[in-house]
């Protein structure tokens, strides 16, 4: 299952501060952290390489100040990189004219903000219709489309409210509706749920997964919450001090953390929800039963395996037996003894 890369960046750098020009001109631009420190330059994003595939949820994750927002602002063209390349659908974004960039944003990109960024003087309906009316759509058409997305995010009946009359969760629903109104292909979300309290946050995550199930956008999602990351992500990029340390599926991160920093993140993860049967089974062994698909998460079959009292057969997507899983392995995962 290889998708075409939708959004690609190569050797992407964003530095803040006075950078000596001969350093920028040099062929091998790759200053070390120490060199940057000596120059008094802040490296917000350093040497980022990414390939984001069409239709995937790509989560960027890291502690505060690790450069997540800067990276996403680079990818969305809000700021210009110090160095590097970005291409979208194979087109070089840095070579685009002002006009082309505007067209790109009007039709291909949508963004959701941490603090919602709703326009205070517009109603819910007007806020959602705003990006459409910016494109010059007629008011009636824009509002009809806006009503559709408002209904989609479950805010029907509140079109006439002003943002300050809504709760935080509702405001973010407006932000989501607004970003979806133009039917973007790439959807950027910068910590969209961080400003919400935990219960609402979970609800919004479910809502988000429901929407993505229907819409299948290419998504770049930022969070500093690892639980959120593994709940939502197809792949996760972990950032630290401007570097991308590891890009992997949640399961790979748990199984093979690149370093202690990553491992620290994964320590408190409910492993039975991340690991799949395929990663835990004894490969090549025989087992009974009808066969459990290898991609099933452990928590879904834990009680079944334990109750069976014998190894159960594991099959791949073609129905071929690939191994077996027994109660001991499941229990090891549940109590956290290795993989």
């Amino acid at each position: 299952m290889t998708h075409p890369a939708k959004l690609v960046c190569r050797n992407l750098w964003k530095l803040y501060g006075a950078i000596p020009s001969q350093m920028l001109d040099s062929q091998q631009f790759s200053p070390t952290d120490d060199e940057l420190k000596k120059l008094g330059v802040i490296g917000a994003v350093k040497h980022a390489d990414l390939e984001i595939e069409a239709g995937e949820i790509f989560v960027i994750m890291g502690l505060s100040g690790s450069g997540k927002s800067t990276l996403v602002r680079l990818l969305s063209g809000l700021i210009e990189p110090t160095m590097g390349e970005i291409s979208i659908d194979g087109q070089d974004m840095l070579k685009m004219s002002e006009r082309e960039l505007i067209e790109l944003r009007r039709h291909k990109m949508g963004m959701v903000f941490q603090h919602f960024a709703l326009l205070p003087h517009l109603t819910v309906l007007q806020n959602v219709a705003f990006p459409l009316s910016i494109q010059g759509q007629r008011k009636s058409a824009a509002e009809a489309r806006a009503l559709e997305v408002i209904e989609l995010v479950g805010l029907k009946g509140r079109e006439g409210y002003f943002p300050r009359e809504l709760s935080g969760g509702q405001q973010q629903r407006v932000g989501i509706a607004r970003s979806l109104a133009v039917e973007p292909e790439i959807w950027f979300l910068d910590e969209p749920f961080s400003a919400l309290d935990p219960l609402i946050r979970r609800e919004m995550q479910d809502e988000f997964l429901r929407l993505q199930g229907m819409l299948k956008k290419t998504i770049v999602f930022i969070t500093h919450d690892f639980d959120e990351a593994i709940r939502l992500a197809d792949r996760i990029a972990i950032m630290k001090d401007g570097h991308i340390i590891q890009i992997a599926t949640p399961e790979e991160l748990v199984l093979n953390p690149a370093d202690d920093y990553v491992q620290e993140f994964t320590r408190h993860v409910p492993r039975d929800k991340v690991l799949s049967v395929g990663a835990v089974m004894e490969a090549g062994a025989d087992g009974g039963g009808e066969g459990i698909p290898a991609s099933t998460k452990i928590y879904e079959v834990a009680s079944q395996v334990v109750a069976a009292g014998k190894p159960l057969k594991v099959i791949d997507e073609n129905g071929q037996a690939v191994g077996a899983i027994d109660a001991q392995r499941v229990i090891d995962v549940l109590v956290g003894n290795g993989a």
């Binding site: 809000l78 505007i102 944003r105 990109m109 949508g110 963004m111 919602f116 960024a117 705003f130 950027f188």
Partner: peptide, 11 residues
């Protein structure tokens, strides 16, 4: 954020 939003909607 509002300024970013303006840019991202293609103003």
């Amino acid at each position: 954020e509002i300024k970013d939003f303006g840019v991202m909607s293609g103003c």
